[in-house]
Amino acid sequence: MTQIIPLSWYLAVSMLLFSMGALGVLIRRNPLIIFMSIELMLNAANLAFVAFARSFGVPTGQIFVFFVMTVSAAEVAVGLALIIIIFRNKHSIDVDLMNSLKG
């Protein structure tokens, strides 16, 4: 006997992931961890998209997920490069030490 997992369960997991990601961005101080939290938010959206697409029976959602993955890969390339150049300069990447602009 097979039973289909209802849509709302997927949505609950996705919303939990999204909240964890958003919270992580707000409270963590390491740019790498912040960045991981942002990826968590994007993947929460991906999960919800696939779940919706499956319940509607249309491919739009899956296709959107490919776009999100590709674009976030491009974003990773730029983001890590930025984090590396700042590490070379300051030998630390703590965002609390990025304070030369506070005024």
């Binding site: 999204f18 990601g21 961005v25 994007l42 974003e75 965002v95 990025m98």
Partner: peptide, 25 residues
């Protein structure tokens, strides 16, 4: 390697990516 420009880049990137997360969701 001007520090303030590098910091501006990282800040803009992190906040911009955060905003993208909201738009995508």
């Amino acid at each position: 390697p001007r520090t303030d420009s590098e910091e501006a880049g990282v800040k803009y990137f992190l906040l911009g990516a955060f905003a993208t997360g909201f738009v995508v969701y």
